[in-house]
């Protein structure tokens, strides 16, 4: 896109993008570490991760401040306005995703105190898809890629498939191994959080869609027509 006549305006919009990019990277590493800590019962990693959640919150505040500042001082319209509004929404959603990551890490602490139980290998597989959705959604925002955003949105259906399969697995384990039902419940909650990461990433994709097209996101339109543009 052509640059603004006022260079400082461009710089501010760039800074907004950079903040969200930074937030995204941090959150992504939080997700990875969360899964790692659950799989390895690594309490130190989990605690460190939970402590770092504050950084993400701080970044969200920064995004909010900058966005409000741009709104007040530059009075953006059209694409600029939609970018700023999308940034506000997306920063909020990324922060929620970071919360889910620290929630998962908290289960590590809970599982630690429980008696040992057989590992569920599917957890790393389950996280793959939401993680990828999240990453792609941020790229779609960064590059204004409508197709990528739509792809992310549709990926959530696959996440649901995996999630249901995983639930099935846990239920079976609960029935077969009732003495470890406490641990399985924790894993159930962890899975729920992972699924929520997918949902939030889908919301980011919706925000990117609105940012690019200027139209409010209509779920029914999407289901009727896989790739409208």
């Amino acid at each position: 896109m052509i640059k603004h006549i006022v260079k400082a305006y461009d710089d501010e919009l760039k800074a907004l993008h950079a903040l969200i990019g930074h937030m995204g990277e941090l959150t992504l590493s939080q997700i990875n570490n969360a899964i790692k800590s659950v799989m390895a019962f690594d309490v130190d990693l989990a605690q460190e991760l939970i402590a770092r959640d504050r950084e993400v919150n701080l970044l969200e505040t920064k995004v909010d401040e900058l966005a409000v500042r741009i709104l007040a001082l530059r009075q953006p319209v059209a694409y600029d306005l939609r970018t700023v509004v999308a940034s506000l929404k997306i920063s909020n959603q990324v922060e929620r995703i970071a919360d889910y990551a620290s929630n998962i890490a908290k289960f590590t602490l809970a599982l630690k105190d429980l008696p040992s139980f057989p590992k569920i290998k599917e957890l790393p597989i389950l996280i793959k898809m939401p993680e990828q959705m999240f990453q792609s959604a941020l790229i779609a925002f960064e590059t204004s890629d409508l197709n990528l955003a739509l792809k992310v949105w549709h990926m959530d259906q696959e996440v649901d498939v995996y999630y249901k399969a995983y639930l099935q697995k846990i239920f079976e384990a609960m029935i077969n191994d009732p003495k470890n039902v406490g641990a399985y419940t924790q894993l159930l909650f962890a899975a729920k959080n992972i699924e929520r990461i997918g949902d939030q990433s889908q919301n980011i994709a919706e925000a990117v869609y609105t940012m690019i097209t200027g139209k409010p996101f209509q779920e029914s339109d999407m289901l009727k027509n896989a790739h409208p543009i």
Binding site: V6, V77, A78, T213
Partner: peptide, 19 residues
């Protein structure tokens, strides 16, 4: 027009990217 201009030139003008 101010949130979703259809033409590139309108967009450029109202967002201050007029060259």
């Amino acid at each position: 027009l101010f949130t979703m201009p259809k033409d590139e030139r309108t967009q450029g003008y109202i967002t201050g990217r007029y060259g």
